[in-house]
Simulated scan of single mutants.
Amino acid sequence: MADTVVLILASAGAGVGLFAAAQLGARRDWRTAPSTALAVFLLLSALSGLDLVLDRAGAYAAAPWATGMLWVTSLGLGPAILAYVLAMTGDPEQGWTPARIARIGWPAGAGMLLVMPFFLLPVSTRLAVYTGVGADADPLAGPLQLVFVALFLAVTLGYLAAAFAVLGRHVRRVRDLFSNLEDRTLSWLRALLLVMLAAWLWGAVKSALAAGAAHEAWLDAAAAAVELAWTAAIGLFGLSQKPIYTPQTETPQVLPAAGKYARSAMPEARQVEIAARLEQAMRGQALYRDPLLSLSGLAARIGVTPNHLSQVLNEHLGQSFFDYVNRWRVEEAVARIGASDEAILAIAYEVGFNSRSTFNAAVKKHAGRPPSAFRPAA
């Protein structure tokens, strides 16, 4: 029964991965860097599911020469997900050159080379290591299983750590560039990476504990279920995710890299002047009401460069662009909530917010109470 469940779940995971990758391939933007990276990840996830199907169906026992070949491709999951994160958070015009692929993929490639001697081992040992069949009688099975686990963790956890670091920098950057962050922070991807991290750690622990013994079907079923879930979720969210940067809006190059203001010593008097000009424009023209307001757009309206405006906001006013604009929006919204019977959500949209959740969070942050608390009692 448990083996049947494993087969069903693993087959479903492989099917979902292939279907989502095919959907990406059918889109007009399939050649863009994010679509390509996501399609590769989904294909590798599908191969992982197929690997488990072949194992449980007895295919490796019938064709032992193929044992472990698909496992090698699992080392590509880490670089594929990192490539997707880099593509989504980077320059939309940057493609996948051989040099860029090599920079991202060389650790996984090195891991694959380290695995190659496994295929020179006797067939019985390879089956014992990979499927658990005869593991009790083979002294090499347990140690080699631990080597496989350690190698997989070293490669994949390194890539996940890099992906989390990139996402952290990305969130800070978009707060400096945009006044509304919906669909731009990739919070869904961060959550799924945490699920993948937990699943891979659990898989490593259970593999290490079971080293040298036959595989437990229910553990494989749990692993297949989790892999099916994250493959479906990444496919669903990835297909619906809109580009974060476009040449028509903002690009990451609007702001300099790390240490961005260290070499730009703007005089204090100039910062005060820009801050005053900014205050006058926001108060007099209510520019914050534009839900699409960006750093570049606001800089153009007050006649300064985006870099100088960002420097004034961060160093002189001590706020990100996102927080600065939303403070103005909250100020007007709170005043209107207390002075009228307009619908609170309508006010939120009119002052520039584009979602209820962002509005509620901003009011609590800048005004200390939820929006409804500012409405006078009847």
Rank of each mutant, 00 (worst) to 15 (best):
W200D: 04
K242D: 05
A10K: 06
R103K: 14
P79D: 07
K206W: 00
L189A: 02
P291F: 14
A335H: 10
Q319S: 08
K206L: 06
Q319L: 11
G17N: 05
R28Y: 07
I81V: 15
P139E: 14
A333I: 01
A339F: 01
G13L: 01
A161R: 11
F41V: 03
L194C: 08
L192C: 10
M88N: 05
L194N: 01
G111K: 01
D3M: 10
A22T: 15
H308F: 11
Q94A: 12
G303I: 09
P252Q: 09
L9C: 03
P267D: 06
V123Y: 07
S74L: 13
Q23C: 12
S179W: 02
E216P: 04
A333G: 06
E216Q: 12
L255Q: 08
V195M: 11
L52W: 00
L82P: 05
A161T: 15
A128C: 03
A300K: 15
A10T: 09
P376C: 01
L209C: 11
A87C: 10
T185Q: 09
L127D: 03
R100E: 02
L120I: 04
L239H: 07
A12N: 04
I81E: 05
R329K: 12
V334T: 06
R190E: 09
I347T: 13
P34C: 07
A26M: 11
A257F: 12
V166L: 03
K260A: 05
L44E: 04
A377F: 09
T36D: 00
L121C: 04
T249I: 04
A165C: 00
A281K: 11
L197W: 09
W71C: 02
D176T: 12
P98K: 02
G259K: 07
D341Q: 13
A37H: 04
G318E: 00
M266T: 13
T4F: 11
E273T: 13
F359I: 06
A210V: 15
G368S: 08
G105F: 14
H170Y: 04
E315V: 15
M196F: 07
S294V: 03
A300D: 14
K365C: 00
A26N: 04
F164S: 02
R100C: 06
K365W: 03
T4R: 12
A343K: 13
L228T: 01
L77T: 06
A191L: 12
A14T: 06
L228A: 00
H366K: 04
T156F: 03
E227W: 02
L120P: 07
D138C: 13
M282Q: 10
L18R: 03
A217D: 13
P122K: 03
V363M: 07
W106D: 09
V304C: 11
R375H: 08
D55Q: 09
G235E: 03
